[in-house]
Amino acid sequence: MGILFSFSVVVAIILLVIAGVSGAGLNFLFGVIFPYIALLIFIVGVTYRVVQWGSSAVPFRVPTTGGQQTSLPWIKANKIDNPTTSYGVIFRMLFEVLLFRSLFRNTKSELREGPMLVHGSEKLLWLAAIVFHYSFLIILLRHMRFFTVPVPTPIEFLEFIDSFFQVGAPLVYITNFTIVIALLYLLYRRLAMPQIRYISLPSDYFPLFLILAIAITGIIMRYFEKVDIVGVKQITMGLVSFRPVIPDNIGVIFYIHLTLVCTLFAYFPFSKLVHMAGIFLSPTRNLANNNRMVRHVNPWDYPVKVRSYQEYEDEFRDKMKKSGIPVEKE
């Protein structure tokens, strides 16, 4: 169900662009207005989500403790997996954000012949995830050649590295292959593993199909159904300089690619993709495990009216004595 729905939505977007651009000639809407709206939704939406997370109460430190806590000097502590200082947290976050450390330690359980329940490590998910994320990052940065004049040297260098093998013309990018293969594995994983398939929702399939469609339309546009690239850069430079122009004769494949990207940007803050920002605000990762070293006051504690035993005894001492109940103060 979810698969079909997500797939249909992506197809519907593509058909909508074809109808809008080739049919109705709404090039300005798809080429200028949608990108601006999408970027605005992206920035405002992500900022809103982060502020929301930031305003949530943090009554207690809840880091996952993946190693020995700092305690007595002669017990060796794991300073990164169970950090007690800000430095430890910074290293933990670096490993998490750049290398997906916790995903690397992901495990799986399988029911095998016997029947026998087998627990094992699941490194393929980590591999596909890291290949996908870094490919996407390189592709995104590489695209900055359309949004800058002159193109900054690091971006030119990145493009040089990505097309290092100098295959064909236009040069084949390594990330063309890696992102598609990684995405196909991530999709295959959801479809082929019964447990994963069971918990997969449209919101899991939709980003996969959407990003896959973006990658494929991009590849088609670069190698097969080529567009006037100078015209494309006129559009993008028009966007970033707030002087929008729409040159003629740019193939509809460009508008499909662009609108899919706009969809991704606009959808971003409302979806699981916002883990891009969320990872920095994960309380199980970004808090130091100093529960017993520092006093943490629960922020929603209100002043409780307390009556001590002394006050109680003061009030009832006489009666207690009369009844023969022992008192602390005569």
Binding site: L39, T47, F147, V240
Partner: peptide, 28 residues
């Protein structure tokens, strides 16, 4: 907001990266 300073610095970096082509072009 807890650690508000750090979160706001992070947000400023995020927005800066998101709109860096606009900043670089400066409407020229």
């Amino acid at each position: 907001m807890y650690d508000g300073g750090k979160i706001i610095i992070g947000l400023i970096i995020f927005i800066g990266i998101s709109i860096f082509p606009f900043i670089l072009t400066m409407g020229k």
